[in-house]
């Protein structure tokens, strides 16, 4: 069949204007004042502190959501229990609604003006304007990715291999470690990379709960926002945005590799 080249031109032009132009401009602006200027912007104490906080938050949120995601995937794939649809749905809520709304919801539940706030305060836990709140918000908005990347792999692989292991005398832990995990590892890793990308880049939910206290509750995305919105320091914005963009690109490349691994793995016995 003849290929419509006209359509190709339209598509490339659209993607060029909507996607390539902004990304190209970001790279151009980040380095327009030279590499040393770029380095000086990203090594500002505020920027470094923000980056470190972002990484710390990710170090908590990513493992949590990975364990919960894999656990939930195993439960959903292998057992039909009362209410599993409701649980399944709950996983998607945080990414289906605005992160700003998630932020407001967390404040209304856990801050001093919220339901549990006074009680939490007596326990010495403060959620609004604190790192705890940032961790909570970040964990919420990156909730479903591991589950969503693992569940289809589990469903597709079926239970045959696990049952075979059981007939050979393997207990649940051994079966999970030696049989299930190798089957789902690329799927899990895919979800982990997505979770990481989302946690490092989260803005809307975090900016609501963090109170934006510079040097204390500023993650890198908030630092970037603040550099422009409060301080009109375009260069600081751009240079640090490039750091986040670079992380995103690396994540994309890793995801691409994982997808092809996953495809090969699946194609094995097709």
């Amino acid at each position: 069949m003849k290929r419509p080249t006209g359509l190709r031109v339209v598509v490339l032009a659209y993607l060029g204007v909507i996607v390539a132009l902004p990304v190209g401009y970001l790279i151009y602006r980040a380095f327009s004042k030279g590499f040393s200027s770029f380095m000086s912007q990203v090594t500002q104490p505020g920027a470094v502190h923000a980056l470190v906080l972002s990484l710390e938050v990710a170090a908590i949120a990513v493992p949590l959501n990975t364990i919960v995601g894999v656990g939930a995937a195993l439960l959903f794939a292998r057992h039909r229990f009362w209410g599993h649809r409701v649980l399944d749905l709950c996983f998607d809520i945080p990414v289906a609604v605005s992160p700003v709304i998630i932020g407001v919801a967390l404040v209304l539940a856990y801050s001093k003006i919220g339901w549990w706030g006074s009680w939490l305060a007596t326990q010495g836990i403060s959620v609004l304007f604190s790192v705890t709140g940032i961790v909570l918000a970040t964990t919420a908005v990156s909730l479903p990715y591991v589950l969503r990347s693992t569940l289809p792999v589990l469903l597709e692989s079926g239970t045959d291999q696990e049952e075979a292991a059981r007939t050979l005398g393997s207990g649940p832990l051994r079966t999970f470690w030696y049989i299930t995990l190798p089957v789902i590892r690329w799927g899990v890793l895919y979800g982990v990379v997505l979770t990481l990308a989302r946690t490092l880049g989260e803005f809307g939910a975090v900016v609501v709960v963090s109170g934006n206290i510079s040097g204390l509750t500023q993650t890198l995305p908030i630092y970037i926002y603040d550099s422009w919105d409060q301080n009109y320091n375009a260069q600081a914005s751009f240079d640090n945005a490039l750091i986040l963009a670079a992380i995103a690109v690396v994540a994309l490349v890793v995801l691409g590799i994982l997808r092809s691994k996953e495809r090969n793995h699946r194609g094995d016995l097709a």
Binding site: L26, F203, G204, P221, I224, W228, A245, A248
Partner: peptide, 8 residues
Amino acid sequence: PTIVAGVV
């Protein structure tokens, strides 16, 4: 990250 897009 959306804020990166926002800045750009």
